[in-house]
Amino acid sequence: METKIRVENLNFYYGNNRALTNINMEIYRNKITAFIGPSGCGKSTFLRTINRMNEFIENTRVEGKVLIDDEDIYSKKVDPVELRRRVGMVFQRPNPFPKTIYENIVYGLKKNGVKNKEVLDEVVDTTLKSVALYEEVKDKIHKSALELSGGQQQRLCIARAIAMQPDVILFDEPTSALDPISTMKIEELLLELKNDYTIIIVTHSMQQAARISDYTAFFLNGELIEIDETNKIFSNPRDKRTEDYITGRFG
């Protein structure tokens, strides 16, 4: 088992308000790690420290280290633009660009200088196939992405992230706006994608974490309470608060 991401003594502040306290954890390559916890526990904030998306919120501050492949992504040498190419992200609500399906997938590549049409065409085909969307949309690749259903849009957003050839993909509650069947499809997809990517998923649904993740981290009030193999967390948590949460006593 290989460590992909190591977080060391991470603190995060919104102004003077500390949102994350002293987080330490390891995330393993080609595994699905789920972050669970009640609303406002900091799990999404923590997710966004891994691709530095919090930097778009003014007046925020990070202390500590996030090492991806042993390189601290907060060191001066790391360019956040380049980092986000390597660490993809899928958001809570499907957010395709108001462009065609094709243009959605190649957007990031084109902006990063890939102009060769044959390459782009191939990327569109392969990524659509790898998110199991190809059969459904192959006849309307040049139609607006907004015509797709919510579940299809979300899979397109995953395709868009994959097209950038990332190592890590962050999912911020990717199924919270979807119906159960679309949710199931996304979950199946995640299980396939972990062969090629390191996946981190924030989820409100403990069942979802139990179904798909290899590791589960439980957050409470900005602290990491515990992280372990998913079956251990759900069958035999070490911390009383974890147990209370997963048995539904609060949250």
């Binding site: 691709n51 998306m53 778009f56 633009v81 380049e82 980092l83 986000r84 190419r85 390597r86 993809g88 992200m89 958001f91 609500r93 957010n95 395709p96 660009f97 108001p98 957007y107 990031g108 902006k111 990063n112 957003c157 868009r160 992230a161 950038m164």
Partner: peptide, 19 residues
């Protein structure tokens, strides 16, 4: 959410402005 989607794909501010 659209701006974030663009930034998350490794684009600069100017590219997000034009894109």
């Amino acid at each position: 959410i659209l701006k974030q989607a663009s930034y998350a794909l490794g684009t600069t501010k100017w590219q997000t402005v034009t894109g």
